[in-house]
Simulated assay, not measured.
Amino acid sequence: MNKNEYEIHDARFRWLIQANAPLQKIAGDCLWNEGPVYFPAADQLLWSDIPNNRMMRWAPGAGVGVFRANANFSNGNTRDNEGRLVTCEHGRRCISRTEHDGSVVVLASHYQGRRFNSPNDVIVDSRGTIWFSDPDYGIMSDYEGFRAEGEIGGCHVYALEPGASEARCVTDDFVKPNGLAFSPDESLLYIADSGASHVEGGPRHIRVFDVRDGALSNSRVFVSIQNGVPDGFRVDEQGNVWTSAEDGVHCYSPQGELLGKILLPEVVSNLTFGGLNRNRLFVTATSSVYALFMGVRGAAR
């Protein structure tokens, strides 16, 4: 990797990157990429191109193609514990799941009888519970969904237990909750608040919660982002947090120390670890997707 493509703020960062690995642009010509998710069984990456209302696919040797057109303005994606695709849809304002036969089912679309705003990012824990954020980005205009009035009266974070008929609200004091990720042992849950994107003086930080028996407690600010706002992020096997930012990807230690940055020419929206050894970082940016081999693996699922 070229020297000017990253910043080292702590010597530990040198052991997390693969210094001689080039930053590769694997896709372009999109409008706003989001929700990267890697499927090891097929060795392929999926992601959402939200304004173009499609989901894209990339695989080594096969290149880029459309995975799903008319994708209901999908945003965040993840795999569940059975290897199925779980998606946040702005268009239908729901969480959906793609079954192994290709059919798509809606898992949750309302809370206490009111429609969600526009589910944004999603993760699944080891028990199969689906955790997702619900800001209002997808109903603010017709660019990433359909303009509409919110029904819930706020932007919250929810958890949907396996077999449950309705999600439960786990925290309701965010301005615009966004990316989520667990620590490797799932004792901590990190949640981004990107409220500064539309609220003057709003939050631009990642908070962290203690997790016990599916409940959150002891909320505190983990890190504040100075370049843009935090969007999507992931945690590696050592517990370091790799988060999106305006100037690239920032890496923080479990104690919240800035270790280094991977600098990119576009605003970064999200990222995920993938590859057959979980040592390849896939980064979705404004119009492109980048890939980079790393010196550390993503946290095991």
Rank of each mutant, 00 (worst) to 15 (best):
L107D: 10
C94L: 04
L107M: 15
T98S: 01
G145T: 06
S126H: 06
R97Y: 05
S118T: 13
A108W: 04
V86D: 01
G138M: 05
C155P: 04
Y158N: 12
C94Q: 14
S74Y: 03
G145F: 04
D142T: 07
Y143W: 15
M140S: 15
S103Q: 12
D172P: 02
F146I: 11
H100V: 11
R147I: 04
Y158S: 10
Y158Q: 11
C169T: 15
N75V: 01
G145Y: 05
F132H: 12
V157E: 01
R147D: 05
I152S: 00
C94I: 03
R93M: 06
N81V: 13
S118F: 06
T87L: 15
V124G: 05
I123Y: 02
R84D: 05
H100R: 13
D173G: 00
L85T: 08
A159F: 02
E166C: 02
E99M: 10
D80A: 09
H90A: 03
A159V: 09
R92K: 12
A164Y: 04
N120G: 05
N117G: 08
A108G: 02
H110V: 04
V170S: 08
I152G: 02
V124I: 11
I139E: 06
N75H: 02
A167Y: 10
T87E: 13
S74F: 03
D172G: 00
H100I: 12
E99L: 11
S109K: 14
D101H: 00
R79A: 09
F116C: 05
F132R: 11
P119H: 01
G153E: 02
M140T: 14
G153W: 06
G91T: 07
P162K: 09
G91K: 01
L107R: 05
W131A: 03
S165K: 15
V86C: 08
C94A: 15
L107E: 11
V105M: 03
P135S: 09
R84Q: 13
Y158I: 06
V122A: 03
V104E: 12
F132L: 11
I123M: 05
G153Y: 04
D80T: 07
R114C: 14
Y143H: 13
S103D: 09
R115V: 10
P119R: 10
V104R: 08
C155F: 03
R115Y: 12
G113Y: 11
E89L: 13
V122Y: 09
R147T: 01
S109E: 13
V122R: 12
A148V: 01
S74N: 08
G91L: 00
G91P: 00
H90Q: 12
D172T: 15
A164T: 13
F116L: 12
G150W: 07
G102N: 05
I139F: 11
N117S: 10
I95P: 06
E89S: 13
E89Y: 01
G138V: 01
E89F: 00
S118M: 03
G113H: 10
L107A: 10
R114L: 14
S103E: 11
A159D: 02
S103V: 00
Y137F: 15
G153C: 09
Y143T: 14
T98Q: 12
D136T: 07
E149T: 09
D125S: 00
A159N: 05
A164G: 09
V105S: 08
S141D: 14
G153S: 06
D134G: 03
P135C: 07
V170R: 05
S133I: 07
E144H: 01
